[in-house]
Design a protein around this nucleic acid. Structure first.
Lengths: 337, 337
DNA sequence: CTAGCATGATCAAACGATTGTTCACGAGTA
DNA sequence: TACTCGTGAACAATCGTTTGATCATGCTAG
């Protein structure tokens, strides 16, 4: 790898001259001839600035961390795609840090943040991490954008319209004629989960429908927990005729559990899920979903982080464009009556 | 952020003493008392070594690049999980570089490799990148491990038993009584695609079954291309009674296309797919698959890269443990006869 | 009594780039 | 002629660590 001084030697000039010419700062006084020789030498040696040296001098790594609960789900994938793409336009790289199955006392997150590896961090907290964890992250002093969680005081955040989305899902079932509607939500500590539940309650209240406490569960967003939720509801003397599932991953679990229990979807029970990933189409029956702009969320998160890094501004943004959209497939139908 | 010299000041010793003590090199002569003061000071200041400075001095970034065709599929997710986990045990971080939708003339890959950001690279080539691209990557001088592609001469590689896996899939159909079997493969330039096709041909030959050229397609590994393959076969005067799909993502496309065309699976046509990701279970019907050790492939790739980085060895490894395994679900059945 | 030596610690150079400061030189002015 | 000033370029310090070389000290051995 050619260094600045290699180029300088070849061009017969000083290192600083090369640095100034190649970094193209405005207002540098270098003659046209020298400039040319430097450019030629750089090209001939295929010079590329050394990232570590640059980072050390400028304390900018041009990398951000993306802390996510796991990488093996379609929601992450969409988010990730947005982050990646925005990062590319900003000339940044993305370091993935999965908090899935992190051994107790694992240091990787604090190290990621404390060792100057990244200029900032994007955090999406999963079910198994608490607000305390978020605080250790935001207290690190690094610019942080939290995804789908608004943290008090520190850092910025970016989220989607969970309430509106959930209202859309619930209203769809109500319009189909369902009255006894179940809710399979996220864990109680999840902020987005609380907002989604609120959206559900709101839609039910508006329609003057009562919400039986036994029909509201909060096991979590994973397939297994979706299955758990369905089990709990199926056990009731009169199970719901429809269920709103607050996350599509959980909805996949609901679907397989339904199959196992001999519950036909949508004949015996309608299912509508939050998030529209590509897996909704391959499921059977294809899932009726509410699309939230996850890709855009990823882009916005990265864009916000960039702003935060460069100007220290930290705002809480709600991504409302495109608005939540109901995508009707085959998992919902009018109740059997 | 506390630096070495902050710690040194606080402990009343020199910077080099601190460096030596904290890096715990064997055979450093430091008194117990000094050692203790240094450790105390470091703890009090919450000292963490600056990664960029370290990287500059040692030319080791403790980061590797993972170049993949895309991040929104379950195969990537499994692989990624393996890479991540192995990287963690090796104290390495993973930088994702997706080649999906890279604008023409994009510099991100060469830059990733040329600027000393990473100690090595893991490359999985997709359909849209050629052998030339692989060469530009391997020619960079960085340690490279290619995943599922053996590249001539340079770098190491790691792959799974494609032939054996494909034989397993094909034999399953043969055992069920199918004779007119279609094959939906990857693009012809794909090495793993060639191996899979070979496995298919081999199994057919062993069973003394003829392979009609019109039943062998090579559109690619994506859902749309799977759909395309099915379209081509469905047009034939006598379509196959079963199809081997060389990639589960393509198989999902086959399944939805079958639904669209009114082809019942498995009654009218059996489908067996390569790779067993979680999406196989949520599909309808749940897909009969051959499980290849993708997670282990990811781990092995990272482990090989680590070896390569540290000792310059480059070998071509085949991950045979666990062996390919047939997972029978509901997309295969005996032919209608 | 002093040369020799292990011990415990500091000095200082280096990694590659950035950047404020200085310097040499020739043109323009008094 | 002597002075200033602008121009084009080099000098040198710095970022935080690592590491070979050096040095001061107290002890043992000849």
């Amino acid at each position: 790898m050619a260094t600045l001084s290699d180029v300088a030697t070849r061009a017969g000039v000083s290192v600083s001259a090369v640095s100034r010419v190649l970094s193209e700062k405005p207002g540098v006084r270098v003659s046209v001839a020298t400039r040319q020789r430097i450019h030629d030498a750089a090209k001939e040696l295929n010079y590329r600035p050394n990232f570590t040296a640059r980072a050390l001098k400028s304390s900018r790594t041009h990398a951000v961390g993306l802390v996510v609960p796991g990488v093996t789900n379609a929601i992450f994938a969409e988010l990730m795609r947005g982050v990646e793409e925005e990062a590319r336009t900003k000339d940044y790289m993305v370091l993935i840090a999965s908090t899935e199955r992190l051994p107790e006392g694992e240091e990787s997150i604090p190290r990621l943040m404390g060792e100057g590896r990244v200029d900032g961090v994007l955090v999406q907290f999963g079910d198994h991490l608490s607000g305390d964890d978020l605080r250790t992250v935001t207290d690190s002093g690094l610019p942080v954008i939290s995804i789908n969680t608004i943290n008090p005081g520190k850092g910025g955040s970016v989220r989607v319209e969970d309430e509106a989305g959930m209202r859309l899902a619930t209203e769809h079932l109500i319009e189909l004629g369902h009255a006894r509607i179940g809710y399979a939500g996220g864990v109680p500590t999840s902020e987005s989960g609380q907002r989604r539940l609120a959206g559900f309650m709101e839609a039910m209240a508006t329609a003057k429908l009562t919400v039986e406490p036994e029909l509201v569960t909060d096991f979590g967003y994973y397939p297994k927990q979706g299955a758990q939720a369905l089990d709990a509801m199926a056990e009731l003397s009169t199970p719901p005729t429809a269920v709103v599932v607050a996350n599509i991953n959980a909805a996949h679990g609901v679907l397989s559990e339904a199959r196992r229990l001999g519950i036909r979807v949508p004949e015996d029970m309608s299912i509508v899920a939050m998030h529209d990933t590509w897996t909704a189409e391959i499921a059977w029956p294809p899932l009726t979903c509410v699309r939230l702009p996850l890709y855009e969320l990823g882009r916005a998160a990265m864009a916000s982080l960039w702003d935060n890094i460069n100007s220290g501004t930290a705002e809480d943004r709600v991504i409302a464009d495109p608005a939540p959209e109901l995508i009707v497939r085959e998992s919902t139908a009018p109740p059997a009556r």
